[in-house]
Structure formats: C-alpha cells, structure tokens
C-alpha cells in the first residue's frame, strides 16, 4: 500500500469544477511529481491533500489512516509538512527563529509560558543544523525579511524540514530561482529524499523529470497521465504540449 493515497477527489468553487475524480498515490521514500499547465488545479490539489480545503467528495489516506477533511494542524501532526508557492515566512523573525518554531520538541511544548526559548541551547543547535543543511549556515540571526529570494525559498523548505515530517509537499520550489540556486535545491532534495517522502508541483520540467520517480499530469482538474518520467516522455499529450518539450 502506498504511504499516501487520494481516491476520487472532487472539489468545486461555486459552479466551477476545479478537481474531478483525482486519484493519486505516493510511495514511501520516492519523489513524486505533479505537473500541468497554469490553472490545471495542481495547487488546489495540494491544498486539498494538505487540509487547506476540504474535498467535496473522495478520501485521503496517509499511512492507512483516513485524514480526509482534517484541518492543516491535524494533518501536520500526522507528519505531513508543506512549503508554499507564495512564500509564507515569519518575516519579523530571524532565520533561526523561523526554523526553531517548527521543531517537534518546540511544538510539543507550545503551551509552555515559562521556558525561555532563546536560552534553549538544544533547540538553537538543532535549528542551526537545519539551516546548515539547507545552505543557510551563518545566517541564523538574519531577519527572514533581509534574506535574498533564493535564501527565502530555501528557508521555506527548511521550515517544512525542521518539523521532521514523514512526507513533504513542495509547491513550485524553484519558482523565481536562478540556475545555480535551482541546482543547489535539486542537490538538497536528493539529499533529503533518503529520509522523507516528497511530492513536488513544478513548472521546471527538467528539474522535475530529473528528480522524480513518478509523475502525474493534471489538466482541467483531472489526472490525464501518470507514470515514470521515461514513460511520460512517450505520452502523446506530454509530447505534443510545451511541458513535454521542456522536459
């Protein structure tokens, strides 16, 4: 059984059908990709899978447990983290503070009103280690708002990683990144795949085809093809679309 399964998901906003009978499954310790043109419903699909939107129909299972319609905080508690297409950082906090808040040991004592977080050496060290892992070592005390675009993207992923998830959803992680930063990110994802199951929505087809074990193509809110990058390259729709040409 796959680690994460979505079966027959439907989602509509008013009279617009955004997702129609979406069935996806993501195997443990694999990198899965979701591709499709703008407006295909990829991000809505992510939002349904991670609890931002409740599906109108269909079910979502994680590790055999039904998590359909659970709020984001409960889904996060199951060990599912995500990053966002539009960056979602705590801009008033330093890079380290952003990471520390996501650490499991900090969230476990989130209601503590007396423990001084600034004096918690363990949490600070673990946060610094996550920053070093994402290439932001030495930037611990830089406010998130002062980081460069690429560094903010890395921090976005770092926050998700700090939660030590079993499953990580990355929404267009290369958006706005240059060639070097994209290559660095690809290395990071290759490194973290050893411990985390990853699902990526991506427009950069080369990036996705190089990394992913399996890819699903969403168009008009439906899964129109899925398989390994090799089989998808042979897919007629992918070959005739711009997406296929880029891959």
């Amino acid at each position: 059984m796959a680690l994460f399964e979505a079966r027959h998901l439907h989602k509509r906003f008013a009279d617009q059908v955004v997702l129609e009978d979406i069935t996806l499954s993501f195997e443990e310790n694999q990198i899965s990709g979701i591709m499709g043109p703008n407006g295909a419903g990829k991000t809505t699909c992510f939002n349904v899978l991670t609890g931002r939107y409740r599906p109108d129909r269909g079910t979502v299972f994680f590790d055999g447990k039904d998590i359909t319609g659970l709020p984001p905080r409960k889904i996060a508690r199951h060990g599912i983290a995500r990053s966002f297409q539009m960056m979602n950082l705590f801009d008033e906090y330093t890079a380290l503070e952003n990471i520390v808040l996501a650490l499991p040991e900090v969230s476990a004592r989130g209601f503590s009103m007396t423990h001084n977080l600034a004096h918690d050496v363990d949490a600070q060290d673990r946060g610094a280690a996550v920053l070093a892992r994402i290439g932001l070592g030495g930037r611990e005390h830089t406010p998130a708002s002062d980081l460069s675009y690429g560094q903010r993207r890395a921090l976005e992923i770092g926050i998700a990683l700090a939660a030590e998830p079993r499953m990580l959803f990355l929404d267009e992680p290369t958006s706005g990144l240059g060639t070097d930063a994209t290559a660095t990110l690809a290395t990071l994802i290759q490194e973290i795949r050893k411990s985390v199951t990853i699902v990526i929505i991506e427009h950069d087809m080369k990036f996705l085809f190089d990394l992913a074990d399996r890819i699903a193509v969403i168009h008009w809110g439906q899964v129109i093809a899925q398989g390994t990058p090799e089989t998808l390259r042979e897919n007629e729709w992918v070959r005739t679309s711009n997406l296929g040409a880029l891959a």
Binding site: R52, P72, R73, A76, R82, N88, T114, L117, A118
Partner: peptide, 29 residues
Amino acid sequence: WRLVNSPFGKIITAIKQNDSRVAFLGYNV
C-alpha cells in the same frame, strides 16, 4: 516578559505574522 519569550509567546507573535503558516506547523491557532 517570560511569557513573550517562551514558546507560547513566540507562537502568538508568529500568529500575528502568518497564522496560516502557524496552522500548517501543527499549532492550534
């Protein structure tokens, strides 16, 4: 002062900055 520097205090200030992200970190906003 203790409270605003505790995990609880840091989380409420994170809620001020970005409450949806706080929820996605598993906190009950």
